[in-house]
């Protein structure tokens, strides 16, 4: 079926003649234009690309592994009255909250840092479609990972209660679970945002740690020392605003604060990053 017929030419044509074509070259009949690459195919390929390297595979696997380890740690180390679903959730949540953004970062930055973007963006010459697919796949992985984590935590909770002999304590409401999933998806979007903004794996990962661990500390310090910032903090500190999601205390005001802080720290930089991705040179 291949039109690429490889003829092995008997002799190397001398440099002074123009090869062996002496007649008119075969002019192929005009070919049918193939249909547009469907989005489903781009999604499937981007999903595959998240698993098909050793680093990608182990990053995803480590979500399951750390969930199991954290669950085991709660059963082994927590005092009997602390073996509750909430504590399993908290123990599992910490490593996942760090791992998910890494997955989102690498899905974007590897195209630049590993330079595979040269192929990706010539096979699909619409960067917005590829980035969109990465975003959908990342969020999908985030949600599925959280469901897996909750399931592992639930098993741990049952197992823990069986070992301690206490009643099983289900102290996370369904709504609260939803908030936690949302908080993790937001964390993942932060990673994604840093990925499109920095487009370099190491840089974006460092950026993420500054963003999540250095900035909140500075914000706390400023709030403790400057009165004018104390009230403002609730509205502009994204990390602080997400605290309510993890605690499951979402009032109307908390949503508004999440919105304003998210606009400043996620939506605007994400928009800038997307603009850069669409316009920058892929080298």
């Amino acid at each position: 079926m291949s039109a690429v017929t490889v003829e092995t030419l008997g002799t190397v044509p001398p440099a002074t003649t123009t090869g062996t074509t002496t007649g008119t070259p075969t002019v192929r009949a005009p070919r049918a234009i193939p249909p547009r690459t469907p989005t489903s195919r781009i999604l499937a390929v981007e999903l595959r690309k998240m698993f098909d390297t050793r680093s990608g595979f182990w990053l995803l696997a480590s979500i399951g592994i750390t969930a199991v380890l954290a669950t085991a740690a709660v059963i082994i180390f927590a005092p009997d009255d602390q073996v509750t679903y909430d504590n399993f959730g908290a123990a599992i949540g910490v490593p996942i909250a760090i791992l998910l953004p890494m997955i989102a970062i690498l899905s974007v930055t590897s195209e630049w840092s590993q330079r595979s973007g040269l192929t990706t963006f010539t096979l699909v010459p619409h960067r917005a479609r590829v980035i969109q697919a990465k975003l959908v796949v990342s969020v999908g992985i985030g949600v599925v990972s959280m469901l897996v984590a909750f399931a592992v935590g639930a098993l741990g909770n049952l197992l823990g209660a069986a070992i301690t002999g206490n009643d099983v304590v289900w102290d996370i409401s369904l709504a609260h679970m939803g908030y936690i999933v949302l908080a993790n998806v937001l964390g993942m979007l932060v990673g994604f945002m840093l990925g499109v903004l920095v487009r370099n794996s190491a840089g974006a990962i460092v950026g993420y740690f500054v963003y999540s661990f250095v900035l909140p500390g500075l914000s706390m310090l400023l709030a403790a020392n400057a009165r004018w910032f104390e009230d403002l903090q609730l509205w502009v500190d994204f990390n602080f605003a997400q605290g309510a999601l993890f605690n499951g205390e979402m009032t109307g005001e908390a949503w508004a604060q999440l919105g304003t802080a998210g606009l400043i720290w996620l939506v605007i930089p994400l928009a800038v990053g997307l603009g850069l991705v669409l316009r920058s040179e892929v080298k």
Binding site: I33, P34, R36, R115, H126
Partner: peptide, 25 residues
């Protein structure tokens, strides 16, 4: 224009830099 090719790989084969691949694949 290249961006107007609906499925470019099936009409134009491109190799710009053989080393520009994810080393882990």
């Amino acid at each position: 224009r290249f961006a107007d090719l609906p499925d470019p790989g099936r009409e134009v084969g491109v190799l710009l830099d053989a080393s520009a691949q994810h080393a882990g694949r």
